[in-house]
Each structure stands twice: as C-alpha cells, then as structure tokens.
Design a protein around this nucleic acid. Structure first.
Length: 426
RNA sequence: GUGGGCGUAGCUCAGCUGGUAGAGCACCCGGUUGUGGUCCGGGAUGUCGCGGGUUCGAGCCCCGUCGCUCACCCCA
C-alpha cells in the first residue's frame, strides 16, 4: 500500500481489466430487461430518511442499524439509499407514472449503501441492478420478473445457482400463521438476543445459522401451510408459469426476506460457490408499499441483483479470465496502434488516429519517447491488431505499411486512406 | 457490535530457533542502422502498516494502535 489515502472501509472498486466484467454484467442485465419492455429509471442515491424508515420498515436491520444518515445544510435528514424499491415507488408516485398504462415497468442500477461490517461479497457501497413492475397484481407478472433475472444469469453463463421461491401470503395468511408460530416458539427455550429478533419478525429465526436453533425449529409451523385460498392459487399460478418457462426452482418454505414490505411471492437466487453471502439476487411482491408511501393502493413486484456478487460468482465458476493483469487474453483490443517516430510524426499520428476513430475503430498511438521496440511491445500488450509505423519516410511519401500483428504480414497503404485500408484489413 | 486470521516491492508471496531484506510476475533499457510476441543480459522499486517496549541488535519477541480479511448478526 502506498500513498496517503485509502478507499473508505468496505467499498468495492473496479478498474481495468476487471471493470470490463462489471460493464458486461450490467449490459447483459439491461439487455434482458429492455427485451421485456422495462426501461431505465435513474434516481438519486440519497433520499429523505423517512422514505426508508416508513417504506422498508423500522424493525428491519437495514433501517435500524445499517443506514448512512446525515443532515444537509437545511437541516433535512437524508439517507444514502440502502435499497432500490422505495426510491422507485417514490418517483412513480411523485411523477404520476402510475396514472397511465399499468404495469409501469422500470429498471435501475447503481450504488447502494449499508453500514455493515464488510465481509466476502458484502460491501458498504455495493452495486445493484433491479427491476420493478408496478400496478398490477398478476402472478404471471411475478413469473416474468423472475424469468428476467433467470435469463440474465443464464446469459452470463452462470450455472451453479438455485432459484428458491415461496409465498409470504397476504395479511390474513400471515395473521393465522403468526398465532400458531408464536405459540410454537413460546414453548422453546431461547436466549434473549434471539427472542428480540423473534419479537421484530418471527420468521427471521428461520435464517439463524446455529445448528441448535435449527434443530429446535425443525417442526415449526410453516407459513405456506396457512395461505388463504387466494394466496395459494396465485402461488400455484407462479409455479405453473415457471414450469412452462422451464425455469427450475425449489420451494423454500423457510425463506426469509430482510425487508418488511414483501407479501405474496418472494424469491431468491442462491449461488453455491460463494461464502456466507450466497444470495446473488432476490425480490418479491409488495402489496402495501405504495399506499404506505402516500400513493395509490397498487401492488408491485421486483427484484434486486447484486452485481458485485454476480462478478464473484462468475469468477468462482471460472467464467472470467483472471489469469494475469495485462489485458491480453480478454476481449479488449485495438484495431490500430500508430508508432510515431519524432514530433512531426506525432502531429500527423494524432490526426490520423482521430480520423480512424471517427469511422468506428478503436485506435491508440505511442505517446512519450519510447524506442521503436518499446512502442511495438506496447502495441502488442494492448492487443493491437494492426500497427502503422510513422516516420520521416512515411511523412514524405504519404505511404505506409500496415502491419497485421497476428501473422506479421504488411500491406502498403496511403496515409490519407488509412481508415479505408483498415476496413479492408479487418 | 462480537470473534478468528493476516499486514514485507505495483501484484502474489518467501524470509530458518532475533544479526539492519529476497523470489516470481509486471515495469524500464539493451542484444548494431526503423518493427512486437519466445529467449538472453542489465536496471529501478520497499520509512518490512504505524507507535512504543525488550535486546548489543527486531521484518521476526511483547504491548498498543490502525487497516485488511473471514465468520456471527443481517443481506445484494
């Protein structure tokens, strides 16, 4: 480590060549979303604090202890967004996006913030890609949302993951279950900390990683068994649609979601190659959120995918070339690299380069005062497909030789028609 | 907030039971006049995280501190 400064604790940074993977992941996810008619919504990274306390739920860990909250100069309490859905819903309400055709289909991506203790795959600033379909309560829309995430993962080449789904039911389903569940828990001998958690959200106990706790709740009543017929039918419809789409899934009746607004369908994509933070994406339906935030009483469904974790997953599956730091071997390349000899050559080179770039080629040139050999080496490292050496002879004659790096062949070209020659060569 | 591991060149790391630092990769130059990938030769690079202590002497021991990392909690 060197220099006087270090990045703040727990943030991830992406620089070349790894940043290329980041771009690729985002592009693929955008592609599958656009293909399903979801469009970009770009939102602020900070919002009124109350948007999250009210929307996400004060009892959640996210809100109660993981928010980056600060006061602006006007004394307003603002918070760096810890998740994406609340902001999307806020914007929909604020701008009346829900007054036209429903559902409103949107996707977003960008940084999110949670003040947690960092860990493998868990960062204080992390990146998410998410979509929301708002305004209709249709189980087939649930299936569509899930399928988009699934297609996204598949198109990236991921294999070692599992889709888990469940239904959290409606208020009535949950009320009935809660009574039985609390009755069951009251017969258990639990420590204080665990009791606290149970008080906030009884279901959370399913997520406890301690074996002795898991043993105690082995026979606990499960929410799925308490679904009302309406909730149950919707859940069956979602499963049926997933089967129709040939998307494999497992029902996990003990799945727990960290945000309070979820109702009905809930799902999570779990990768098997990651550490303790195995979830690469998750989401679900939220019935009451929009109304809670002051909008119409409309239901919505969406997901959030962790880009950082997807990248980790890709790497553990060997889908990313991390063999060395230089850019050779990855799909980055230059169409042309010009090696100028002397300042007058540089002057000509810089305009030639620009001309070539305008026609859509990727081009670079040797800067500084490197030896010819050094510049050629640089061209090779940068994975240049063609190289043009530009010296006094070329400047005077207006002719040059375009070298194809793959086999060393050279063709004569005139400098003025460099772009055209390159087009022929490629 | 709690616990474990680790902090040595840009990167990955070595450094034996304490004697004032090394390797590989990367980087730069060169191997006869203007042409890369292999090979060969040469070169630069570190307040050994920071502060204190023990010692004739510490990268190696002790204390503190900061940071990183993994795990718990929780989540993407």
């Amino acid at each position: 480590m060197s220099g006087d400064f270090q990045a703040p604790k727990g943030v991830s940074e992406y620089f070349p060549p790894r940043s290329g993977i980041f771009e690729k992941v985002v592009r693929k996810l955008e592609h599958v979303s656009l293909a399903a008619n979801y469009h970009l919504i770009e939102l602020p990274v900070f919002e009124d604090t109350e948007l999250f306390t009210r929307g996400v739920g004060e009892s959640t860990d996210v809100v109660s202890k993981e928010m980056y909250t600060f006061e602006d100069r006007g004394g307003r309490s603002l918070t760096l967004r810890p998740e994406g859905t609340a902001g999307v819903i806020r914007s929909i309400i604020e701008h009346g996006l829900d007054r036209g055709q429903l559902p409103v289909k949107l996707y977003y991506r960008g940084p999110f913030f949670r003040a947690e203790r960092p860990q493998a795959g868990r960062y204080r600033q992390f990146y998410q890609f998410g979509i929301e379909a708002v305004g209709l309560d249709d189980p087939f829309l649930d299936a569509e949302v899930i399928s988009i995430a699934y297609r996204g993962f598949s198109s990236l080449g991921l294999k070692n993951f599992e889709l888990q789904i469940t239904s959290l039911g409606d208020d009535e389903s949950r009320g009935k279950h809660r009574v039985e569940f609390l009755k069951f828990l009251s017969n258990l001998d639990l420590d204080g900390e665990t009791l606290d958690r149970v008080k906030k959200n009884p279901l959370r106990i399913f997520d406890d990683k301690r074996a002795e706790i898991q043993a105690k709740i082995k026979d606990a009543p499960v929410l799925l068994d308490f679904l009302t017929s309406d909730s149950s039918m919707k859940f069956e419809a979602v499963k049926g649609a997933l089967e129709e789409l040939e998307i494999p899934f497992v029902v996990n009746s003990r799945m727990v979601r960290g945000l309070d607004y979820y109702t009905g369908t809930a799902f999570e994509f779990v990768h098997k190659g990651l550490g303790a933070q195995a979830s690469i994406g998750g989401g679900g339906r939220y019935d009451g959120l929009m109304k809670t935030l002051g909008g119409q009483d409309l239901s919505g469904i969406g997901f959030g995918l962790g880009i950082d974790r997807i990248i980790l997953a890709l790497e553990t599956e060997g889908l990313v070339d991390t063999s060395n730091e230089n850019s050779k071997g990855v799909d980055e390349y230059l169409d042309l690299f010009i090696v100028p000899i002397g300042d007058s050559a540089k002057l000509r080179a810089i305009s030639l380069i620009e001309m070539v770039r305008k026609t859509g080629f990727v081009a670079d040139m040797g800067f500084g005062d490197r030896s010819l050999k050094g510049a050629m080496k640089a061209a090779d490292k940068l994975n240049a497909r063609h190289v043009l050496v530009l010296g006094d002879a070329e400047l005077q004659s207006g002719q040059g030789r375009l070298k194809r790096m793959a086999d060393g062949n050279e063709v004569s070209i005139t400098l003025d028609s460099l772009a055209a020659s390159l087009k022929n060569a490629v």
